[in-house]
Simulated assay, not measured.
Amino acid sequence: MTLKTDVAIIGAGPVGLFAIFECGMVGLRCHVFDALDVAGGQCSALYPEKPIYDIPGFPRISGAELVERLETQAAPFNPVFHLGQRVDQLQRLADGGFRLVTSKGLTLEAGAVIIAAGAGAFGPNRPPLPGIESYEGKAVHYYVRRAEDFRGKRVVIAGGGDSAVDWALALHGIAAHIHFVHRRDQFRAAPDSVAKLGQLNGRGIDIVVPFQLAALEGDGTSLDAVVVTSLDGENRRLEADALLAFFGLKSDLGPIANWGMELALHHLPVDPATCQTSQSGVFAIGDVATYPGKLKLILTGFAEAAAAAHAIYPLLHDGQPLHFEYSTSKGAPGLAAD
């Protein structure tokens, strides 16, 4: 069965979620796709509990709360989500619309497409440890969604960047004990955070340097210990219930790069007035979009979502111009005025 909608949104991060709202405000129905199995993009996968300070109207808001509020704002427009699947094919139809086919075989036809894919599909750089795949999602994690999931656990954190150091500080006092493993005694994280980590060394956190991951001990699901080794061949066995491996992300545009649009250093150049790509009917917003003076901020992506929605309306209504109304006068379905 082929599904049909007005707009297909590729990417369910904050900017993609806000695009649902902006499309809904001009009467456009949306289906939303994301390779991750949860909405929220990197906000959900990488920093759900870390504060964000540059969202208008919120002096401080966590990634998870921002995603929740955006979902609430979009919900009255009844978006249909297709999570945990990548859009592999984008084909132009005779009527000017598009057919999308996903990695799970789902087929959708849409009048226009908004690509809000951030830096593209992303995934963790997995440490080369034998048998690590069987532990992933149970005892080995590349993202932290809730600090409380590690309460009372013995945790090994590996890495030397901001994610590793920040989560070591955040889990201090929650985890029973933390071993912090890095292959050298210099860190790439913010100096203030590194200083705080050093102050906690021996006080719930043991810094293990210069060592690197060597092996996992356990039954393939539950972890007993992480074995680390130094450059001199010294081995240490760190008792652990969980391994948090923060070695960065690998990302690429994947199939998007083969859809016939102009590319610029893994980004999609767009008209800043409409956010349309070099292919008519395909728009790009958020970090994946580029134009002179572009600022890679969530709030910039929000403005781009509005521009794209307003540009799509006449495309799907035979050139009929959109009668612009402010939300203060028009209101929004399902969102009661205070």
Results as ranks from 00 to 15, higher is better:
Phe247Ser: 08
Thr229Met: 08
Thr229His: 06
Glu239Ser: 13
Asp241Cys: 05
Gly254Ala: 12
Arg237His: 10
Glu262Lys: 00
Arg236Lys: 15
Ser251Lys: 14
Ala284Cys: 09
Pro269Phe: 12
Ala303Lys: 11
Leu223Met: 05
Gly281Lys: 06
Val228Ala: 08
Ile285Lys: 00
Gly286Lys: 08
His317Ala: 12
His267Arg: 15
Glu239Lys: 14
Ile256Trp: 02
Ala289Asp: 11
Ala284Asn: 04
Val227Asp: 01
Phe302Pro: 00
Leu315Arg: 15
Gly293His: 09
Gly286Ser: 10
Glu239Gln: 13
His266Asp: 14
Tyr313Leu: 11
Ala305Arg: 03
Glu304Arg: 14
Thr300Trp: 02
Leu265Gln: 12
Asp224Cys: 10
Gly260Gln: 08
Ile298Cys: 06
Tyr313Trp: 13
Val226Gly: 05
Asp318Val: 09
Thr300Met: 02
Asp224Val: 08
Phe302Ile: 13
Ser222Asp: 11
Val282Tyr: 00
Pro321Lys: 15
Gly281Ser: 09
Ser222Arg: 15
Val226Ser: 05
Asp287Gly: 13
Cys275Gly: 01
Pro314Glu: 04
Ala308Thr: 04
Lys294Cys: 06
Ile312His: 11
Gly260Val: 01
Lys250Asp: 02
Gly254Ile: 10
Leu295Glu: 08
Asn258Trp: 02
His266Thr: 09
Leu297Lys: 15
Ala240Asn: 04
Asp271Leu: 08
Ala306Tyr: 00
Leu316Ser: 09
Pro272His: 09
Gly301Gln: 08
Gly260Thr: 10
Leu316Met: 09
Leu253Lys: 15
Val282His: 04
Gln279Gly: 03
Asp318Tyr: 12
Ala284Ser: 11
Pro314Gly: 05
Glu262Cys: 00
Ala257Asn: 09
Leu223Ser: 03
Ala309Val: 11
Asn235Pro: 02
Ala257Ser: 15
His317Arg: 06
Phe246Lys: 10
Ala308Asp: 07
Leu253Ile: 06
Cys275Gln: 11
Thr300Ala: 14
Lys250His: 12
Val228Arg: 00
Asn258Ile: 06
Ser278Gln: 10
Pro272Ala: 03
Met261Lys: 12
Leu238Thr: 08
Glu304Gly: 12
Leu253Thr: 01
Pro272Tyr: 07
Ile285Phe: 01
Phe247Ala: 08
Leu299Cys: 11
Leu243Trp: 06
Ala309Arg: 07
